[in-house]
Amino acid sequence: MANATNNQQGGNTWVGVIAGVLVGVLVVVVGFLTIVPRGTLATPSPSPSVTEPAPTTSSPAPSMTETSTPSETPTPTPTETPSDTASPSPTDSASASPSASPTGPVAGVVTSLPSGSYIAVIKSLYKQSYTGEQAVAYAAERAKGGYTPVAIDADQIPGLKKGFYAIGVPNLKNYAEVKQACAGLGLPNGDSCFPRTVGG
């Protein structure tokens, strides 16, 4: 009877131990589940930076080409404007020249001389600055030593510079007579009194 009682008590002890262990494991599992939050595991779900397919940076490139084209258009416009302003200037100078140089004959101005003759030229008066009458008066004032210079229309006499009135002594036969005329007028032979040949 004593052995049976001891066996029964030993079996109850093991059952109690096993039950206690099971209860402890359940408490630990339940405590672990309550401590660990389930919502934190769902946070990595949002995919990182999916909005990268925005390589629309190539759009400013065509804008640069559009700005370069209008910059080229204003350049030809200023080049045309100075050409218009330059055109009236020659017209003014051309209009002044016929008014200063009369085409009609002026009394005292020589327009014809024998070819091959010499002229002792003492001065050249620009036609745009002097009239024929002024050239005649200038020549008359230079008379000296028996020589009287005259005003010669250089446009009508070959061998003289065009656009001037030549003031000098015409109808000389050679260079020696030119030197005599220059000496009679009191001018040294050279820049102030020089020979010109008609038709040469």
Rank of each mutant, 00 (worst) to 15 (best):
A2Y: 06
N3M: 13
T5E: 15
N7G: 07
Q8E: 11
G11Y: 10
N12A: 07
T13A: 09
W14D: 12
G16L: 15
V17C: 15
I18R: 13
G20W: 02
V21E: 11
L22F: 13
V27M: 02
V29K: 01
V30T: 11
F32S: 02
F32T: 04
L33H: 01
L33A: 04
V36E: 03
L41F: 14
A42W: 11
P46V: 08
P46I: 15
P48E: 12
P48I: 08
S49R: 10
A54D: 10
S59H: 03
S59E: 14
S59R: 13
A61L: 04
T65H: 03
T65E: 00
T65W: 02
E66C: 01
S71M: 03
S71Q: 04
P74C: 02
P74H: 05
P76C: 03
E80Q: 13
T81R: 07
P82M: 05
S83C: 06
A86G: 13
S87N: 15
S87L: 12
P88S: 14
P90Q: 09
S95D: 08
A96T: 08
S97E: 11
P98A: 05
S99M: 10
S99G: 12
T103K: 10
P105E: 14
A107D: 11
G108S: 09
G108D: 09
V109T: 08
V110L: 12
V110A: 11
T111W: 08
Y118D: 05
I119T: 10
I119A: 05
A120R: 00
I122V: 10
S124H: 07
S124M: 12
L125S: 05
Q128F: 11
S129V: 06
Y130D: 04
E133H: 09
E133A: 15
A135K: 04
A135F: 05
A137Q: 08
Y138H: 11
A140M: 02
R142I: 00
A143T: 04
A143N: 02
K144P: 01
Y147D: 05
P149S: 02
V150H: 05
I157K: 07
G159V: 06
L160G: 05
K162G: 12
G163E: 06
G168I: 01
G168M: 02
L172E: 01
L172A: 01
K173H: 06
E177T: 03
E177D: 13
Q180A: 14
G184I: 00
G186I: 05
P188A: 15
G190P: 04
G190F: 04
F194A: 06
F194I: 00
R196G: 05
R196D: 10
T197Y: 09
G200D: 10
